[in-house]
Design a binder for these strands. Structure first.
Lengths: 155, 155
DNA sequence: AAATAATATTTGTATGTACAACACAAGACA
DNA sequence: TGTCTTGTGTTGTACATACAAATATTATTT
């Protein structure tokens, strides 16, 4: 019988956020796995449906992932015939395929079900509010990181 | 100048949490990198200082990482001579080394600085409150996931 | 005591993600 | 015109993390 001992981790925002993020990932994977898509790939696809011809740079901005990660995701989606790449000079356009268009509504549904799932668990307004607070905190941290980068460049 | 278009991601708790977690990771890495430690390794070390002889199972519980991940972390720390493994029958005890004991206070300091850093960015009470809410939400999600697992086993 | 079950840890393997280095196209400018 | 610079994408490589299977050790049952 271990007493669930308190320690420095329990009050650490960094730690708690990480753990929470991994738990939510599991929840999300449960929704998307029947489609044989990871949540990240599914999100990318939805953005492509929304703006056919969208490029890696914009995807990177929207998903807040590095360009190299986006390249890897597109590689994998191309291999699974879910998107098509079209090179336009130095830039690249990404389009959905027939196959992925057929899945569009089920992907959107899975996303909605994910939303319903955690809204049920956390309470809808609570979940929404938490999401907003996290998004806000994220902006503040991003700003701080950018400023720090700038400072380092100076000296 | 792109208008930062709204989309389904902006209100998604899962997405926002993921992104926030990655940003905080960067903040944490900035604190720990002078010690040539990743934040996760540093956390594990602190737990080992706190309870020399602690085993993988308990570390797994406290850090909320799978046992296999813990094994990999310990492998890496052993390679860097920061902990020692001692096998006791079917279980394993992990001890700090002289080398890591020498680093103990700087590791603790880095952790504290991380805390100060994001407290400054987010406001101390806000950060604390956010951390608590996330921890709470995490418990609720974990419970939901466990119940789901149970349901699946039934059918 | 042999057989079996339960527990703890490790290994093989796969995915997500990042960083640094590279390639290449497009403009700028001499 | 030819070179420099900048913008955009991709590749090589590395790390964190997980799952499922293998292994080893202890506990339980027959």
């Amino acid at each position: 019988m271990e007493t669930p001992k308190q320690n420095f981790l329990d009050t650490c925002l960094f730690f708690n956020t990480n753990v929470f993020s991994r738990q939510l990932l599991k929840l999300a994977e449960a929704q998307f796995s029947p489609l044989k898509l990871s949540p990240a790939h599914a999100s990318l696809l939805l953005l492509v449906f929304d703006a056919p011809g969208i490029g890696p740079k914009e995807l990177s901005r929207l998903l807040q992932l590095t360009p190299s990660t986006i390249t890897r995701f597109i590689d994998s989606l191309v291999k699974n015939k879910l998107v098509r790449r079209k090179s336009q000079g130095k830039s690249v356009c990404v389009f959905p395929t027939e196959k992925s268009k057929d899945m569009q509504s089920s992907i959107a549904l899975a996303y909605k079900n994910l939303y319903l799932r955690y809204s049920k668990v956390l309470g809808a307004t609570n979940a929404m509010d938490l999401s907003n607070r996290i998004a806000l905190a994220n902006e503040q941290v991003m700003k701080a990181l950018k400023d720090q980068e700038y400072d380092e460049t100076l000296f």
